[in-house]
């Protein structure tokens, strides 16, 4: 456990400068926008005088220089304060934390689906390279890999919600259903099926292809020949010796795809009208709420860092070679 903790601390510390770069870069990107949140707010009010604008800018600290505001932002961030959302008239952190669970549920389920089913089908394909099943899965996964997630979402809605009426078309749960406990969980699960498939299928295809390629590579390794020389059952060779090794790069890929998946959930949440973190980004853009958009980007960076920390821990648990010295020489 000690080894894992050290790993986490090292990774967490090295993330701080990277996060600072994200904050600074995003800050100056949004800084260069013409018109700030106050302008947007006044437009939404239907206009206002210069006096009001000046007062508002003072309240939100928008009258100070860019660098001093960046400094204020970073020092507030260190206290987990992301500022005030003009559009929602609430602390940004509250708005984000309210939306985050839906997105985490969506992403977590999509990741689980993609990873479990993808690696499983990858094992099926890679167990007998060149077989009919292998070729079918290979072509199928490539086709799936080319399907845009938002369009897949629409097609799924059309088929399974509009035509077959198996699943609801939108939302995260039935509105004012009064359900609680288990019934509510089932209701949410039913709402999640289609968005999870729409978001997860691309990654399912990706993991399938990686697993299949990884297994083909490992078939050629000496230790597989050694396992065959031991006369082990084919099943054991495939699962224990080959798949176990081929799984490792998939875990790394899981970390690399975390950011892309978070980005993908923006569109999926829009298609399925899920009040999540990604849809919040779109709302922030629509309301020209720059501090909120900034908060969303910073938060997503933190989220990606955290996911990668978890991935590192998982990898260390799966690969005995990581972070360990020679026991004896």
């Amino acid at each position: 456990m000690h080894r894992a903790l050290k790993l986490v601390r090292r990774r967490a510390l090295s993330s701080i400068p990277v996060l600072l770069i994200v904050v600074t870069g995003t800050f100056f990107l949004l800084e260069s926008a013409t018109g700030d949140a106050v302008d947007a707010y006044l437009v939404s009010l239907g206009g206002g005088d210069a006096e009001l604008a000046r007062n508002l800018r003072e309240t939100y600290g928008l009258d100070q220089s860019a660098w001093s505001r960046l400094w204020l932002y970073v020092s507030a961030l260190a206290r987990f304060d992301l500022g005030w959302s003009v559009a929602f008239n609430r602390p940004i952190l509250d708005v984000i934390l309210e939306r985050l669970p839906n997105t985490l549920l969506l992403m977590g389920s999509a990741t689980a689906l993609a990873f479990l089913l993808g690696s499983l089908l990858g094992i099926v394909a890679g167990a007998r390279p060149g077989s009919g099943v292998d070729r079918l899965l290979s072509v199928g996964s490539l086709a799936l890999y080319a399907v845009p997630s938002f369009w897949l979402g629409l097609v799924l809605i059309l088929l399974f919600a509009v035509q077959l009426r198996w699943f609801p078309t939108a939302g995260i749960e039935s509105i004012a259903s009064g359900k609680s406990g288990f019934d509510r969980a089932v209701d949410i699960a039913r709402h999640l099926v289609l968005p999870v498939c729409a978001l997860g299928f691309i990654y399912l295809a990706l993991f399938l292809r990686m697993m299949r390629a990884g297994m083909a590579e490992i078939w050629r390794q000496d230790f597989v020949l050694a396992a065959r020389a031991k006369g082990l059952a084919r099943r054991r060779i495939v699962l224990r010796h080959i798949a176990r090794n081929a799984l490792l790069p998939l875990v790394t890929m899981l970390g690399l795809q975390a950011a892309a998946m978070l980005g993908g959930s923006v569109v999926i949440e829009s298609v399925f009208a899920i009040p999540g973190f990604g849809r919040l980004a779109q709302e922030a853009v629509a309301a020209r709420d720059a501090p909120l958009l900034m908060g969303i980007i910073v938060m997503s960076a933190i989220l990606v860092i955290l996911v990668n920390l978890l991935i590192d821990l998982a990898y260390a648990a799966l690969d005995p070679r990581v972070g360990q010295g020679e026991r004896r020489t």
């Binding site: 994200v22 870069g25 995003t26 997503s300 990606v304």
Partner: peptide
């Protein structure tokens, strides 16, 4: 390389969204 890291931990789509909305 830290700058590269920074670009990799921000979802590319979110970045594009922010960039287009500003520029």
């Amino acid at each position: 390389m830290r700058v590269v890291d920074a670009f990799q931990i921000v979802p590319g789509f979110l970045l594009a969204l922010a960039f287009v909305s500003v520029m």
